[in-house]
Simulated scan of single mutants.
Amino acid sequence: MAEVRCRISDEDIVEGYLRPKVNGAATANPRYIVDNMEEDVYKREPWLLPQPTDPILNPNEWLYLGKRDWKYLWAEGVDCEGSWIPVEGRYRIMSEDSGELIGGAMRFRYCFRNKNDKEAPMVLSNWFMREYRLCDKFGNPVKTRHVLCKITCYPHL
């Protein structure tokens, strides 16, 4: 699968949007980032999330500021009908200017089952998420519930 590159760099996502939010800076987010801080973005099916359009984003791509409960590796959705499961390990995000480690990301894929059938096997969907978070200089995640997620739907998977 060839991944369509986002027009916003990983560094911009971490330094321009996520870090100010975690640090409590009173900055306005661009209209193409859905600030969903009061809701756990992982608890809703991705196709039910708001999907604003903007020329800076690729088609079928959305950015969400949200929160996450870190005690679970899998981010399980409502009524165990769907989950974001990890599909790739973590990778580091480095500052182009300083070479310092500034954040990390992990990739997930949404899997689901038929409603009310908890015994049915999970089915892979065409929805992917890249979860961005802050890291300290040693690569350890910063202790915060804030994450920025880039969710992409690949219509021809």
Rank of each mutant, 00 (worst) to 15 (best):
Ala28Glu: 09
Pro30Thr: 06
Tyr32Gln: 10
Tyr32Cys: 08
Tyr32Ser: 10
Asn36Phe: 15
Met37Phe: 01
Glu39Ser: 10
Glu39Trp: 07
Val41Asn: 01
Val41Cys: 10
Lys43Met: 11
Lys43His: 10
Lys43Leu: 14
Lys43Cys: 06
Pro46Leu: 02
Leu48Arg: 09
Leu49Pro: 05
Pro52Gln: 13
Pro52His: 13
Asn58Val: 04
Asn58Ile: 04
Asn58Pro: 00
Pro59Val: 13
Leu63Asn: 08
Tyr64Thr: 01
Trp70Phe: 08
Trp70Val: 10
Trp74Tyr: 12
Val78Pro: 03
Gly82His: 13
Ser83His: 06
Val87Thr: 14
Arg90Met: 14
Tyr91Ser: 15
Met94Gln: 03
Ser95His: 05
Gly99Lys: 03
Glu100Gly: 00
Leu101Trp: 07
Gly103Thr: 06
Ala105Val: 02
Ala105Cys: 11
Met106Ala: 06
Met106Gln: 13
Arg107Met: 10
Arg109Trp: 01
Cys111Ala: 10
Phe112Trp: 13
Asn114Ala: 15
Asn114Thr: 08
Asp117Pro: 04
Ala120Arg: 05
Ala120Cys: 07
Ala120His: 08
Pro121Phe: 14
Met122Phe: 15
Val123Pro: 00
Trp127Gly: 14
Phe128Asp: 05
Met129Phe: 09
Arg130Met: 09
Arg130Asp: 07
Tyr132Phe: 15
Cys135Leu: 12
Asp136Ser: 11
Asp136Ile: 13
Asp136Gln: 09
Lys137Leu: 13
Lys137Tyr: 08
Phe138Asn: 14
Gly139His: 05
Gly139Lys: 12
Asn140Ile: 02
Asn140Ala: 13
Pro141Trp: 06
Val142Ile: 15
Lys143His: 14
Thr144Leu: 08
